[in-house]
Amino acid sequence: MSNFWNKLLYHEGRGWWDLPRTQWQDPNPQMEGPFGHGIAPIKRTWEIITAANYHHGTPWFYVLIGAILSIITIVEVWAFTWETLGGLLIPLMLVLSLAKFILVVGFFMHLKFDRKYYAWIFTACMIIGIGIFVALLLLLEYGNQTQQ
């Protein structure tokens, strides 16, 4: 599969897109990826704070994530007091808590840094769980409407 994407996306002269050589094919290009040099400083900072070579972050990185989590929680509680939200409250809360969920799972539980196996296991379980329980809720909701 990875071979397929290599052939599709990278033009090293051997794939399906037999394009001429570019500066990206230098032995050690400065920056790869779709955004080129634009995000290089960001990426460098990212690598420093996450200590990406060691498969986990630095303490300050975790403190940063903790701060973001706190801020999201404060925003949630603040948005809760905002009476005019009405029907938007539930989607907003779901999105915010999803963000918290992903931050904890991705960084505190190291899924972002760890082998992809673990992420697959957890994601597969989440997909089955969410799938069947959403189906269950829909079924019961629907059943109630037909009774009335």
């Binding site: 089955i128 799938g131 069947i132 189906a135 079924l139 629907y142 059943g143 037909t146």
Partner: peptide
């Protein structure tokens, strides 16, 4: 193993889940 998760209501066809379900 995967599809087995999404068939459970066939044990409950006579419960009255409605035609769509």
């Amino acid at each position: 193993g995967f599809m087995g998760w999404f068939v459970w209501s066939h044990h409950m066809f006579t419960v009255g889940l409605g035609p769509a379900a």
